[in-house]
């Protein structure tokens, strides 16, 4: 609802997901303005930006190679000269391992969500748009839901061995149903809107309607879902690697760091605390940004 400066101009009618160009630009500007006006959104975005930059340039930023051992200096506490955050049981630099571990976390997060998107979005569109496919895809969704990500990872690890890729695939598969359901209900909603119905009546092809009207208008909800799916995947990777079902040592991963630290936690608490805090900061930043984004996109106005 906009307040007009010139008091006598008529107020705008409610815009409803219409891809009308000037309105769309105004909407984007309003969303960005809402995000910038929200300190939590700005902070979380800054954290994510730093994390991504660090991840991309990790090999250059990390002071040591994450696998470089130094048996003369095992369990050096944080603040030791040369090892800002200390060393672990094999004398490896904790900071370097955190940096490379975060990079692996982000990789798995993106890979998993990409998997879920590539499968989930088309199926969701098809399920919502073609009535004949709805039942089949719904059964498929139910089937996927019956396998929790950890159990999927167990199965995949049993069949193909544990690895970063398999962890990402297991998490991604587990996230497919969420995307299918979301995109399906959004498609159903959009399909009933006037401008889409009109386009269908005008004889537009199904693929054209889906690509031109439905998908572009569904992007915002997909985006929001992706911002909550990435941190979930990061947590999932940590769990799997911790259990030995994901990234394998000596490759650095926040989960494997915690698995090792479990044995030495009493002696070197920082090796147990720092990776956990790193995971939390990453995940928290994604979750806060996702929340802010959802609020900013919500036509009913802010909710947090």
């Amino acid at each position: 609802m906009s307040t007009t400066e010139a008091p006598l101009t008529p107020g705008p009618s409610v815009a409803d997901g219409d891809a009308d160009a000037p309105r769309e630009v105004g909407r984007r500007r309003r969303i960005v303005r809402r995000l910038i006006g929200n300190p939590l959104a700005v902070i979380s975005f800054a954290v994510l930006l730093v994390a991504v930059v660090v991840a991309v340039f990790a090999p250059w930023i990390a002071p040591y190679s994450p696998e470089q051992t130094d048996f003369a200096r095992t369990f050096a506490p944080p603040g030791t000269s040369g090892h800002l955050l200390g060393t672990d049981d094999l004398g490896r630099d904790v900071l370097s391992r955190l940096i490379l571990g975060s990079r692996a976390s982000l990789e798995v997060g993106l890979l998993a969500v990409a998997t879920a998107l590539v499968v989930g979005v088309p199926l969701g569109l098809a399920s919502g748009y073609f009535r004949s496919l709805d039942a089949v895809i719904s059964r498929f969704t139910d089937l996927l839901l019956a396998f929790p990500f950890l159990i999927l990872a167990v199965g995949l690890a049993a069949i193909r061995g544990a690895s970063l890729g398999n962890a990402a695939v297991a998490i991604g598969i587990a996230q497919i149903p969420g995307f299918i359901r979301l995109v399906r209900s959004e498609t159903l909603r959009l399909k009933s809107l006037d401008f889409v119905t009109a386009s269908i009546v005008d004889g537009a092809g199904d693929l054209w309607v889906l690509g031109k009207h439905v998908l572009p208008n569904a992007t915002s909800v997909i985006l929001v879902q992706a911002t909550v799916a990435i941190p979930a995947a990061i947590l999932g990777e940590a769990v799997l690697s911790f259990l030995g079902l994901g990234i394998q040592p000596p490759d650095p991963s926040l989960g494997t760091m915690l698995a090792t630290a479990q044995q030495f936690a009493a002696r070197a608490p920082w090796t147990a605390i720092l990776p956990g805090v790193t995971i939390m900061v990453l995940v928290l930043a994604f979750n806060i940004f996702g929340d802010s984004l959802r609020d900013a996109l919500d036509p009913k106005g802010s909710r947090s």
């Binding site: 915690l258 479990q262 936690a265 147990a272 995940v283 979750n287």
Partner: peptide, 27 residues
């Protein structure tokens, strides 16, 4: 309430378990 929920959602709970063992059980 929101802040606690966000943290509860973002903290890896197996890690929370490790910390709890470290400080509530072992120590």
């Amino acid at each position: 309430a929101n802040g606690l929920a966000l943290i509860g959602l973002s903290v890896p709970h197996f890690w929370l378990g490790l910390v709890a063992i470290l400080y509530l059980a072992v120590a």
